[in-house]
Design a protein around this nucleic acid. Structure first.
Lengths: 232, 232
DNA sequence: CCAATAGTGTCTCTGAGACACTATACC
DNA sequence: GGTATAGTGTCTCAGAGACACTATTGG
Protein backbone atom coordinates (compact mmCIF):
# COMPACT_ATOMS: atom_id res chain seq x y z
CA UNK A 1 0.00 0.00 0.00
CA UNK A 2 1.20 3.53 -0.62
CA UNK A 3 1.15 6.49 1.68
CA UNK A 4 -1.80 8.78 1.18
CA UNK A 5 0.38 11.84 1.50
CA UNK A 6 3.83 10.62 0.54
CA UNK A 7 6.90 12.14 2.12
CA UNK A 8 5.90 15.73 1.75
CA UNK A 9 9.49 16.97 1.36
CA UNK A 10 10.15 16.95 5.08
CA UNK A 11 13.06 15.53 7.03
CA UNK A 12 13.37 14.32 10.56
CA UNK A 13 16.35 14.58 12.91
CA UNK A 14 17.25 14.16 16.57
CA UNK A 15 19.27 16.56 18.72
CA UNK A 16 20.72 16.09 22.19
CA UNK A 17 21.15 18.66 24.94
CA UNK A 18 23.78 17.14 27.19
CA UNK A 19 24.03 18.99 30.49
CA UNK A 20 26.66 18.62 33.15
CA UNK A 21 28.00 20.52 36.14
CA UNK A 22 31.39 22.16 35.99
CA UNK A 23 32.61 24.63 38.59
CA UNK A 24 29.16 24.43 40.15
CA UNK A 25 27.57 25.74 36.94
CA UNK A 26 25.38 24.07 34.34
CA UNK A 27 27.23 23.50 31.08
CA UNK A 28 25.98 22.19 27.75
CA UNK A 29 28.05 20.08 25.41
CA UNK A 30 28.49 21.64 21.96
CA UNK A 31 29.82 19.95 18.87
CA UNK A 32 31.41 21.71 15.93
CA UNK A 33 29.32 20.89 12.88
CA UNK A 34 30.95 18.71 10.23
CA UNK A 35 28.75 19.72 7.31
CA UNK A 36 26.66 22.46 5.83
CA UNK A 37 24.53 24.20 6.79
CA UNK A 38 26.48 26.10 9.43
CA UNK A 39 29.58 23.97 8.91
CA UNK A 40 32.16 24.48 11.70
CA UNK A 41 29.67 26.32 13.90
CA UNK A 42 29.13 25.18 17.49
CA UNK A 43 25.78 23.43 17.76
CA UNK A 44 23.95 20.70 19.61
CA UNK A 45 25.04 17.22 18.58
CA UNK A 46 22.38 15.94 16.24
CA UNK A 47 21.75 13.86 13.21
CA UNK A 48 19.35 11.97 11.04
CA UNK A 49 17.36 8.98 12.11
CA UNK A 50 18.73 5.79 10.59
CA UNK A 51 15.69 3.64 10.11
CA UNK A 52 17.84 0.59 9.49
CA UNK A 53 19.56 0.70 12.90
CA UNK A 54 17.37 2.79 15.19
CA UNK A 55 14.32 1.27 16.89
CA UNK A 56 13.10 4.69 18.07
CA UNK A 57 14.12 8.33 18.21
CA UNK A 58 15.52 7.54 21.65
CA UNK A 59 17.87 5.03 20.05
CA UNK A 60 18.77 7.54 17.39
CA UNK A 61 19.59 10.15 20.02
CA UNK A 62 21.73 7.68 21.98
CA UNK A 63 23.55 6.66 18.81
CA UNK A 64 24.13 10.24 17.68
CA UNK A 65 25.43 11.17 21.11
CA UNK A 66 27.80 8.20 21.18
CA UNK A 67 29.02 8.81 17.62
CA UNK A 68 29.69 12.50 17.99
CA UNK A 69 30.92 12.64 21.59
CA UNK A 70 31.69 9.10 22.70
CA UNK A 71 29.31 9.45 25.65
CA UNK A 72 26.71 6.94 26.77
CA UNK A 73 24.42 8.78 29.14
CA UNK A 74 22.63 6.94 31.96
CA UNK A 75 19.85 9.50 31.76
CA UNK A 76 18.45 10.41 28.36
CA UNK A 77 14.88 11.64 28.19
CA UNK A 78 12.72 13.29 25.59
CA UNK A 79 12.44 17.06 25.87
CA UNK A 80 10.09 18.08 23.05
CA UNK A 81 9.88 18.31 19.29
CA UNK A 82 10.60 21.38 17.24
CA UNK A 83 9.43 21.82 13.69
CA UNK A 84 8.74 24.19 10.85
CA UNK A 85 9.77 25.32 7.40
CA UNK A 86 12.23 27.98 8.52
CA UNK A 87 14.33 26.52 11.30
CA UNK A 88 16.69 24.69 8.92
CA UNK A 89 17.61 26.14 5.51
CA UNK A 90 17.35 22.70 3.94
CA UNK A 91 13.56 22.80 4.23
CA UNK A 92 10.63 21.73 6.38
CA UNK A 93 12.16 19.89 9.32
CA UNK A 94 11.17 18.02 12.45
CA UNK A 95 13.64 17.63 15.28
CA UNK A 96 12.94 15.38 18.24
CA UNK A 97 15.11 16.69 21.04
CA UNK A 98 16.45 14.72 24.01
CA UNK A 99 18.29 15.90 27.08
CA UNK A 100 20.98 14.02 28.94
CA UNK A 101 22.45 14.53 32.40
CA UNK A 102 25.93 13.23 33.15
CA UNK A 103 28.66 13.71 35.75
CA UNK A 104 31.41 15.98 34.52
CA UNK A 105 34.11 13.31 34.70
CA UNK A 106 32.62 11.20 31.92
CA UNK A 107 32.78 14.05 29.43
CA UNK A 108 35.84 13.46 27.26
CA UNK A 109 38.62 16.02 27.11
CA UNK A 110 37.60 18.92 24.94
CA UNK A 111 39.19 19.26 21.57
CA UNK A 112 38.76 21.16 18.34
CA UNK A 113 35.22 19.85 17.74
CA UNK A 114 33.94 19.35 21.29
CA UNK A 115 33.31 22.05 23.84
CA UNK A 116 31.58 22.44 27.19
CA UNK A 117 29.92 25.81 27.48
CA UNK A 118 28.25 27.47 30.47
CA UNK A 119 24.54 27.76 29.70
CA UNK A 120 24.61 31.34 30.97
CA UNK A 121 27.24 32.35 28.42
CA UNK A 122 26.31 30.59 25.21
CA UNK A 123 27.74 31.74 21.91
CA UNK A 124 25.41 32.36 18.99
CA UNK A 125 23.93 29.01 18.10
CA UNK A 126 22.58 28.03 14.69
CA UNK A 127 19.02 26.91 13.94
CA UNK A 128 16.78 27.26 17.01
CA UNK A 129 19.35 25.63 19.27
CA UNK A 130 19.48 28.56 21.69
CA UNK A 131 15.76 28.19 22.37
CA UNK A 132 16.15 24.46 22.75
CA UNK A 133 18.94 24.76 25.31
CA UNK A 134 16.92 27.32 27.27
CA UNK A 135 13.95 24.98 27.35
CA UNK A 136 16.12 22.05 28.46
CA UNK A 137 17.61 24.06 31.31
CA UNK A 138 14.18 25.15 32.41
CA UNK A 139 12.91 21.58 32.32
CA UNK A 140 15.80 20.34 34.44
CA UNK A 141 15.30 23.14 36.97
CA UNK A 142 11.57 22.48 37.20
CA UNK A 143 11.98 18.75 37.63
CA UNK A 144 14.77 19.18 40.16
CA UNK A 145 12.41 20.86 42.60
CA UNK A 146 10.40 17.73 43.21
CA UNK A 147 12.53 14.83 41.95
CA UNK A 148 15.91 13.18 42.22
CA UNK A 149 16.99 14.24 38.72
CA UNK A 150 20.21 15.97 39.86
CA UNK A 151 21.69 12.70 41.12
CA UNK A 152 22.50 11.96 37.48
CA UNK A 153 24.86 14.92 37.58
CA UNK A 154 26.82 13.15 40.30
CA UNK A 155 29.03 10.15 39.92
CA UNK A 156 28.10 6.62 40.95
CA UNK A 157 28.54 7.50 44.63
CA UNK A 158 28.45 10.85 46.39
CA UNK A 159 28.03 12.43 49.81
CA UNK A 160 24.91 14.29 50.85
CA UNK A 161 26.75 17.62 51.13
CA UNK A 162 27.97 17.08 47.56
CA UNK A 163 24.49 16.27 46.36
CA UNK A 164 23.10 19.30 48.13
CA UNK A 165 25.66 21.48 46.38
CA UNK A 166 24.53 20.00 43.06
CA UNK A 167 20.90 20.82 43.81
CA UNK A 168 21.89 24.33 44.82
CA UNK A 169 23.87 24.79 41.62
CA UNK A 170 20.97 23.61 39.47
CA UNK A 171 18.30 25.58 41.31
CA UNK A 172 20.49 28.62 41.77
CA UNK A 173 19.62 29.13 45.41
CA UNK A 174 20.74 27.78 48.79
CA UNK A 175 18.79 24.94 50.37
CA UNK A 176 18.17 24.33 54.03
CA UNK A 177 20.31 21.43 55.14
CA UNK A 178 17.75 19.81 57.43
CA UNK A 179 14.93 20.11 54.89
CA UNK A 180 17.16 18.74 52.19
CA UNK A 181 18.00 15.65 54.21
CA UNK A 182 14.38 15.13 55.17
CA UNK A 183 13.42 15.35 51.51
CA UNK A 184 16.09 12.89 50.43
CA UNK A 185 14.96 10.50 53.13
CA UNK A 186 11.30 10.66 52.18
CA UNK A 187 12.00 10.23 48.46
CA UNK A 188 13.72 6.98 49.54
CA UNK A 189 15.79 6.86 46.38
CA UNK A 190 19.24 6.63 47.94
CA UNK A 191 21.02 4.00 49.97
CA UNK A 192 24.23 4.36 51.97
CA UNK A 193 27.37 2.67 50.69
CA UNK A 194 29.22 0.73 53.39
CA UNK A 195 32.41 2.74 52.86
CA UNK A 196 33.10 6.29 53.90
CA UNK A 197 35.02 9.13 52.36
CA UNK A 198 37.56 11.52 53.69
CA UNK A 199 37.16 15.08 52.62
CA UNK A 200 40.58 16.58 51.99
CA UNK A 201 40.42 18.65 55.15
CA UNK A 202 40.54 17.92 58.82
CA UNK A 203 37.00 17.11 59.72
CA UNK A 204 34.44 14.36 60.09
CA UNK A 205 34.17 12.29 56.90
CA UNK A 206 30.83 12.05 55.12
CA UNK A 207 28.82 8.95 54.38
CA UNK A 208 28.78 7.84 50.74
CA UNK A 209 25.41 7.25 49.06
CA UNK A 210 24.25 5.84 45.77
CA UNK A 211 20.99 5.64 43.81
CA UNK A 212 19.08 2.54 44.87
CA UNK A 213 19.26 -0.11 42.15
CA UNK A 214 15.45 -0.37 41.98
CA UNK A 215 15.29 3.29 41.03
CA UNK A 216 17.65 2.89 38.11
CA UNK A 217 15.71 -0.20 37.11
CA UNK A 218 12.38 1.62 37.36
CA UNK A 219 13.71 4.38 35.16
CA UNK A 220 14.90 1.89 32.55
CA UNK A 221 11.55 0.12 32.79
CA UNK A 222 9.59 3.29 32.19
CA UNK A 223 11.15 3.34 28.75
CA UNK A 224 10.15 -0.11 27.66
CA UNK A 225 6.85 0.00 29.51
CA UNK A 226 5.32 2.52 27.21
CA UNK A 227 4.61 0.30 24.28
CA UNK A 228 7.75 -1.72 23.82
CA UNK A 229 10.08 1.19 23.43
CA UNK A 230 7.91 2.62 20.69
CA UNK A 231 7.86 5.89 22.52
CA UNK A 232 11.11 7.22 21.28
CA UNK B 1 22.48 21.24 -1.55
CA UNK B 2 21.34 17.69 -0.90
CA UNK B 3 20.59 15.99 2.38
CA UNK B 4 23.40 13.88 3.72
CA UNK B 5 21.04 11.13 4.73
CA UNK B 6 18.07 11.63 2.45
CA UNK B 7 14.58 10.73 3.59
CA UNK B 8 15.41 7.37 5.08
CA UNK B 9 12.01 5.83 4.29
CA UNK B 10 10.33 7.39 7.28
CA UNK B 11 7.10 9.32 7.59
CA UNK B 12 5.91 11.89 10.04
CA UNK B 13 2.39 12.47 11.34
CA UNK B 14 0.55 14.34 14.07
CA UNK B 15 -2.12 12.96 16.39
CA UNK B 16 -4.43 14.77 18.77
CA UNK B 17 -5.76 13.57 22.13
CA UNK B 18 -8.82 15.75 22.71
CA UNK B 19 -10.08 15.46 26.27
CA UNK B 20 -13.31 16.77 27.69
CA UNK B 21 -15.53 16.22 30.69
CA UNK B 22 -18.86 14.47 30.32
CA UNK B 23 -20.90 13.24 33.27
CA UNK B 24 -18.01 14.32 35.50
CA UNK B 25 -15.67 11.89 33.73
CA UNK B 26 -12.75 12.42 31.39
CA UNK B 27 -13.60 11.43 27.82
CA UNK B 28 -11.41 11.28 24.74
CA UNK B 29 -12.61 12.06 21.24
CA UNK B 30 -12.18 9.16 18.81
CA UNK B 31 -12.49 9.30 15.07
CA UNK B 32 -13.31 6.35 12.84
CA UNK B 33 -10.44 5.94 10.43
CA UNK B 34 -11.12 6.68 6.78
CA UNK B 35 -8.28 4.64 5.31
CA UNK B 36 -6.04 1.67 5.76
CA UNK B 37 -4.37 0.64 7.92
CA UNK B 38 -7.08 -0.08 10.48
CA UNK B 39 -9.78 1.43 8.26
CA UNK B 40 -13.05 1.99 10.16
CA UNK B 41 -11.38 1.41 13.53
CA UNK B 42 -11.78 4.01 16.28
CA UNK B 43 -8.53 5.92 16.69
CA UNK B 44 -7.11 9.30 17.64
CA UNK B 45 -7.67 11.93 14.97
CA UNK B 46 -4.38 12.26 13.13
CA UNK B 47 -2.83 12.89 9.79
CA UNK B 48 0.19 13.83 7.79
CA UNK B 49 2.00 17.10 7.98
CA UNK B 50 1.29 19.26 4.94
CA UNK B 51 4.48 21.19 4.45
CA UNK B 52 2.78 23.54 2.02
CA UNK B 53 0.18 24.77 4.52
CA UNK B 54 1.52 24.00 8.01
CA UNK B 55 4.07 26.28 9.66
CA UNK B 56 4.71 23.79 12.47
CA UNK B 57 3.46 20.50 13.85
CA UNK B 58 1.23 22.59 16.11
CA UNK B 59 -0.42 24.04 13.02
CA UNK B 60 -0.72 20.57 11.54
CA UNK B 61 -2.39 19.28 14.70
CA UNK B 62 -4.84 22.20 14.76
CA UNK B 63 -5.64 21.67 11.09
CA UNK B 64 -6.12 17.92 11.46
CA UNK B 65 -8.36 18.45 14.47
CA UNK B 66 -10.47 21.01 12.61
CA UNK B 67 -10.70 18.88 9.47
CA UNK B 68 -11.67 15.66 11.18
CA UNK B 69 -13.84 16.97 14.01
CA UNK B 70 -14.68 20.59 13.23
CA UNK B 71 -13.23 21.68 16.58
CA UNK B 72 -10.88 24.59 17.20
CA UNK B 73 -9.44 24.09 20.66
CA UNK B 74 -8.40 27.05 22.79
CA UNK B 75 -5.83 24.82 24.47
CA UNK B 76 -3.61 22.66 22.32
CA UNK B 77 -0.21 21.68 23.66
CA UNK B 78 2.47 19.23 22.72
CA UNK B 79 2.44 15.98 24.65
CA UNK B 80 5.38 14.00 23.30
CA UNK B 81 6.62 12.21 20.20
CA UNK B 82 6.28 8.51 19.54
CA UNK B 83 8.36 6.69 16.99
CA UNK B 84 9.65 3.39 15.74
CA UNK B 85 9.53 0.84 12.96
CA UNK B 86 6.70 -1.23 14.40
CA UNK B 87 4.01 1.13 15.59
CA UNK B 88 2.52 1.61 12.11
CA UNK B 89 2.49 -1.21 9.54
CA UNK B 90 3.38 1.25 6.79
CA UNK B 91 6.93 1.51 8.13
CA UNK B 92 9.21 3.60 10.32
CA UNK B 93 7.05 6.41 11.65
CA UNK B 94 7.28 9.48 13.84
CA UNK B 95 4.15 10.88 15.42
CA UNK B 96 4.16 14.21 17.22
CA UNK B 97 1.21 14.08 19.59
CA UNK B 98 -0.75 17.05 20.95
CA UNK B 99 -3.44 17.16 23.59
CA UNK B 100 -6.43 19.49 23.66
CA UNK B 101 -8.81 20.40 26.45
CA UNK B 102 -12.28 21.68 25.59
CA UNK B 103 -15.63 22.18 27.29
CA UNK B 104 -18.08 19.42 26.44
CA UNK B 105 -20.56 21.73 24.71
CA UNK B 106 -18.23 22.55 21.83
CA UNK B 107 -17.85 18.90 20.85
CA UNK B 108 -20.17 18.31 17.89
CA UNK B 109 -22.95 15.78 18.09
CA UNK B 110 -21.55 12.31 17.74
CA UNK B 111 -22.19 10.48 14.53
CA UNK B 112 -21.00 7.42 12.69
CA UNK B 113 -17.36 8.55 12.57
CA UNK B 114 -17.07 10.60 15.76
CA UNK B 115 -17.34 9.29 19.28
CA UNK B 116 -16.64 10.47 22.82
CA UNK B 117 -15.32 7.65 24.95
CA UNK B 118 -14.63 7.54 28.69
CA UNK B 119 -10.89 7.18 29.18
CA UNK B 120 -11.52 4.48 31.76
CA UNK B 121 -13.41 2.32 29.26
CA UNK B 122 -11.53 2.60 26.02
CA UNK B 123 -12.07 0.08 23.27
CA UNK B 124 -9.06 -1.59 21.66
CA UNK B 125 -7.19 1.16 19.88
CA UNK B 126 -4.90 0.69 16.88
CA UNK B 127 -1.21 1.60 16.75
CA UNK B 128 0.06 2.73 20.16
CA UNK B 129 -2.91 5.00 20.71
CA UNK B 130 -3.89 3.38 24.00
CA UNK B 131 -0.48 4.24 25.45
CA UNK B 132 -0.72 7.74 24.08
CA UNK B 133 -4.11 8.38 25.66
CA UNK B 134 -2.89 7.04 28.98
CA UNK B 135 0.08 9.37 28.86
CA UNK B 136 -2.12 12.35 27.99
CA UNK B 137 -4.46 11.64 30.89
CA UNK B 138 -1.54 11.35 33.25
CA UNK B 139 -0.08 14.62 32.00
CA UNK B 140 -3.35 16.45 32.51
CA UNK B 141 -3.76 15.03 36.02
CA UNK B 142 -0.20 15.96 36.96
CA UNK B 143 -0.48 19.49 35.65
CA UNK B 144 -3.88 19.99 37.24
CA UNK B 145 -2.40 19.67 40.71
CA UNK B 146 -0.44 22.89 40.44
CA UNK B 147 -1.96 24.81 37.53
CA UNK B 148 -5.16 26.22 36.15
CA UNK B 149 -5.31 23.70 33.29
CA UNK B 150 -8.81 22.42 34.12
CA UNK B 151 -10.40 25.81 33.39
CA UNK B 152 -10.11 24.88 29.73
CA UNK B 153 -12.58 22.08 30.41
CA UNK B 154 -15.11 24.71 31.48
CA UNK B 155 -16.95 27.13 29.24
CA UNK B 156 -16.13 30.80 28.89
CA UNK B 157 -17.64 31.54 32.31
CA UNK B 158 -18.26 29.27 35.28
CA UNK B 159 -18.89 29.31 39.00
CA UNK B 160 -16.29 28.29 41.56
CA UNK B 161 -18.32 25.27 42.71
CA UNK B 162 -18.46 24.17 39.07
CA UNK B 163 -14.73 24.63 38.65
CA UNK B 164 -14.07 22.73 41.86
CA UNK B 165 -16.19 19.84 40.57
CA UNK B 166 -14.08 19.84 37.38
CA UNK B 167 -10.86 19.67 39.40
CA UNK B 168 -12.30 16.86 41.47
CA UNK B 169 -13.35 14.95 38.36
CA UNK B 170 -9.90 15.29 36.82
CA UNK B 171 -7.96 14.48 39.97
CA UNK B 172 -10.38 11.79 41.07
CA UNK B 173 -10.58 12.95 44.67
CA UNK B 174 -12.52 15.52 46.69
CA UNK B 175 -10.89 18.88 47.39
CA UNK B 176 -11.30 21.03 50.47
CA UNK B 177 -13.51 24.00 49.59
CA UNK B 178 -11.59 26.59 51.59
CA UNK B 179 -8.19 25.44 50.32
CA UNK B 180 -9.49 25.36 46.77
CA UNK B 181 -10.69 28.94 46.95
CA UNK B 182 -7.47 30.08 48.58
CA UNK B 183 -5.52 28.38 45.78
CA UNK B 184 -7.63 29.98 43.05
CA UNK B 185 -7.17 33.35 44.67
CA UNK B 186 -3.40 33.05 44.93
CA UNK B 187 -3.02 31.80 41.35
CA UNK B 188 -4.76 35.08 40.41
CA UNK B 189 -5.87 33.71 37.06
CA UNK B 190 -9.59 34.35 37.37
CA UNK B 191 -11.71 37.46 37.51
CA UNK B 192 -15.36 37.76 38.52
CA UNK B 193 -17.92 38.55 35.83
CA UNK B 194 -20.35 41.29 36.84
CA UNK B 195 -23.37 39.02 36.32
CA UNK B 196 -24.54 36.21 38.53
CA UNK B 197 -26.13 32.87 37.90
CA UNK B 198 -29.06 31.10 39.42
CA UNK B 199 -28.59 27.46 40.04
CA UNK B 200 -31.80 25.61 39.16
CA UNK B 201 -32.63 25.09 42.81
CA UNK B 202 -33.71 27.33 45.60
CA UNK B 203 -30.51 28.67 47.08
CA UNK B 204 -28.00 31.47 46.94
CA UNK B 205 -26.75 32.05 43.38
CA UNK B 206 -23.04 31.72 42.66
CA UNK B 207 -20.71 34.34 41.26
CA UNK B 208 -19.60 33.80 37.67
CA UNK B 209 -15.87 33.85 36.90
CA UNK B 210 -13.74 33.80 33.78
CA UNK B 211 -10.07 33.37 32.90
CA UNK B 212 -8.35 36.74 33.03
CA UNK B 213 -7.60 37.98 29.51
CA UNK B 214 -3.89 38.39 30.30
CA UNK B 215 -3.68 34.69 31.08
CA UNK B 216 -5.12 33.64 27.74
CA UNK B 217 -2.80 36.15 26.11
CA UNK B 218 0.22 34.82 28.02
CA UNK B 219 -0.60 31.30 26.89
CA UNK B 220 -0.86 32.39 23.26
CA UNK B 221 2.40 34.30 23.67
CA UNK B 222 4.26 31.32 25.05
CA UNK B 223 3.73 29.70 21.67
CA UNK B 224 5.18 32.43 19.54
CA UNK B 225 7.84 33.36 22.07
CA UNK B 226 9.79 30.19 21.59
CA UNK B 227 11.37 30.98 18.28
CA UNK B 228 8.57 32.40 16.18
CA UNK B 229 6.31 29.43 16.44
CA UNK B 230 9.08 27.13 15.29
CA UNK B 231 8.45 24.94 18.26
CA UNK B 232 5.59 22.93 16.83
C1' DC C 1 -39.60 30.22 57.98
C1' DC C 2 -37.35 26.19 55.65
C1' DA C 3 -34.29 24.01 52.51
C1' DA C 4 -30.34 24.20 49.85
C1' DT C 5 -26.21 25.81 48.19
C1' DA C 6 -22.63 29.93 48.11
C1' DG C 7 -19.21 31.86 50.52
C1' DT C 8 -16.18 33.09 54.90
C1' DG C 9 -13.86 33.11 59.72
C1' DT C 10 -11.08 30.55 62.49
C1' DC C 11 -8.88 26.51 64.83
C1' DT C 12 -5.74 22.86 64.43
C1' DC C 13 -2.21 20.18 62.73
C1' DT C 14 1.39 19.06 59.52
C1' DG C 15 5.56 20.18 57.36
C1' DA C 16 9.47 23.31 56.06
C1' DG C 17 13.10 26.45 57.61
C1' DA C 18 16.14 28.40 61.38
C1' DC C 19 19.18 27.47 64.84
C1' DA C 20 21.87 25.27 67.86
C1' DC C 21 23.68 21.36 69.27
C1' DT C 22 26.49 16.88 68.96
C1' DA C 23 29.86 13.76 66.24
C1' DT C 24 34.22 12.75 64.22
C1' DA C 25 37.91 13.46 61.53
C1' DC C 26 43.02 15.75 61.06
C1' DC C 27 46.18 18.81 62.99
C1' DG D 1 42.38 20.56 72.56
C1' DG D 2 41.37 23.33 68.13
C1' DT D 3 39.18 23.57 63.87
C1' DA D 4 36.36 22.27 60.27
C1' DT D 5 32.72 19.85 58.32
C1' DA D 6 29.02 15.92 58.96
C1' DG D 7 24.93 15.01 60.87
C1' DT D 8 20.74 15.62 64.32
C1' DG D 9 17.19 17.53 67.83
C1' DT D 10 13.93 20.92 68.38
C1' DC D 11 11.51 25.47 68.07
C1' DT D 12 8.85 28.42 65.31
C1' DC D 13 6.05 29.84 61.71
C1' DA D 14 3.36 29.38 57.48
C1' DG D 15 0.10 26.89 54.82
C1' DA D 16 -3.57 23.25 54.23
C1' DG D 17 -7.65 20.93 55.90
C1' DA D 18 -11.72 20.62 59.12
C1' DC D 19 -15.51 22.74 60.90
C1' DA D 20 -18.83 25.83 61.78
C1' DC D 21 -20.74 29.82 60.82
C1' DT D 22 -23.08 33.56 57.84
C1' DA D 23 -25.35 34.89 53.20
C1' DT D 24 -28.83 34.60 49.78
C1' DT D 25 -31.92 32.59 46.90
C1' DG D 26 -36.82 29.92 45.89
C1' DG D 27 -40.61 27.82 47.88
Amino acid sequence: MSLASPSDTLFCTVDVVLLTLRDQTLHVLLHRRDREPHADAWALPGGFIHTAEDASTWDAAARVLADKTGITSPYLAQLATWSGPGRDPRGWSVSVVYYALVPAHIVPTEHDRLHLCAVAHLPELPFDHAHIVAEAVQRVRTKSVYSSLPVYLCGETFTLPELQAVYEAVLGEPINKVSFRRKVEELAMLEPVPGERQAGGAHRPAQLWRLRPEVRAAWALSLSERGLNSRG
